[in-house]
């Protein structure tokens, strides 16, 4: 066969350049878009009420907060690069750190769940964090869920079961907004996949609070956060050193809390990641061997042609 390096180059362009180039380009987009705090309101719809009920979003204070802040914080945005941490789940052999996941769940339970729902998770899913059946049942039973109607047509309260979804702090989106100064705290089930940067982004937000720089006036209910697009966020700083008491001897610092809860939220968004990588490694190795065999077969069959 005539060798043609030029055609090989062209093939490389078509095969590799287009997806890679467009991926690179996609990665360079604004990390978090203006109006993000309200964009996530759509997440809420998955919980209790249909998407169309979000009707009046555009004029909620949250929307104003995010959009109004865009212009004067534009300078600050772009200078900030979030840290890329060395997560245990990075890489093709990466796995979740069970102890960190449990601590992260503890933080969610004791802090985040006061405002943020996680409706796509069930208590039974927690067994993946290393809890045994009894522990999962106990965690589920610690909440009271409304069930029914019973045979008399009455709704009734009962202790939670492992098959129940995580209990939401608010009965509906409107109640959540009303309880949070008009800003909807997004559901966290998918948050790690719904933001550029995933765990790095969550970590950056949780550790990104500070006093606003001189000359920046904040309205009540607004906080300064270097990782937030526009730098103004409606969520008060949720974590501070020593806020949650760990039962193991991990440091009870903001940094550690933030890492643990980021790990937990990544698991929540992608619970099958470890199985996916395990199967992927097997499939890849199988295919690699098969490719070698097929190469040998091809060589042998074509031997009489060379």
């Amino acid at each position: 066969m005539v060798r043609h390096p030029l055609s090989l180059t062209a093939m490389a362009v078509v095969l590799l350049a287009m997806p890679v180039v467009s991926h690179a380009a996609a990665g360079k987009q604004t990390p978090n878009a203006p109006g993000e705090e309200t964009a996530v309101a759509a997440d809420a719809a998955s919980g209790t009420s249909p998407a169309t009920s979000e009707a009046a979003d555009a004029d909620t204070p949250a929307a104003e907060t995010a959009q109004g802040s865009t212009e004067h914080a534009e300078a600050a945005h772009g200078e900030y690069e979030m840290d890329h941490l060395n997560w245990s789940f990075n890489g093709i052999f990466g796995a979740y750190d069970r102890a960190s996941l449990q601590r992260g769940f503890q933080i969610y339970k004791e802090v985040c769940s006061a405002c943020h729902s996680m409706t796509r998770l069930s208590y039974r899913n927690l067994s993946a964090l290393g809890y045994n059946d009894g522990e999962v049942k106990a965690i589920a039973a610690s909440v009271t869920v409304s069930d029914g109607p019973n045979d008399e047509g009455e709704m009734f309260d009962r202790p939670g079961r492992p098959s129940d979804h995580f209990k939401s702090p608010f009965p509906n989106v409107q109640a959540a907004k009303a309880g949070n100064g008009g800003a909807y705290p997004p559901d966290l089930s998918l948050i790690a996949k719904a933001r550029h940067g995933g765990a790095d982004y969550i970590h950056a937000i949780l550790t990104g609070y500070s006093e606003p720089p001189a000359g920046k006036e904040l309205m009540s209910g607004q906080y300064w956060n270097r990782a937030m697009h526009g730098n103004i966020i409606a969520m008060p700083p949720p974590l501070t050193d020593g806020r949650v008491a760990y039962s193991d001897n991990s440091p009870q610092t903001l940094e550690q809390y933030s890492r643990d809860v980021s790990q937990f939220l990544t698991w929540a968004a992608e619970p099958h990641m470890e199985e996916r990588k395990r199967i992927g490694i097997k499939a890849f190795l199988f295919m690699l061997v098969l490719t070698g065999v097929l190469f040998g077969v091809k060589k042998k069959i074509w031997a009489d042609q060379h």
Binding site: G35, A42, A51, E54, K193
Partner: peptide, 14 residues
Amino acid sequence: PDHYIQYNALQTPA
């Protein structure tokens, strides 16, 4: 990331 946020007819992605 916007693939993991449910469609909302009133909220245009950036």
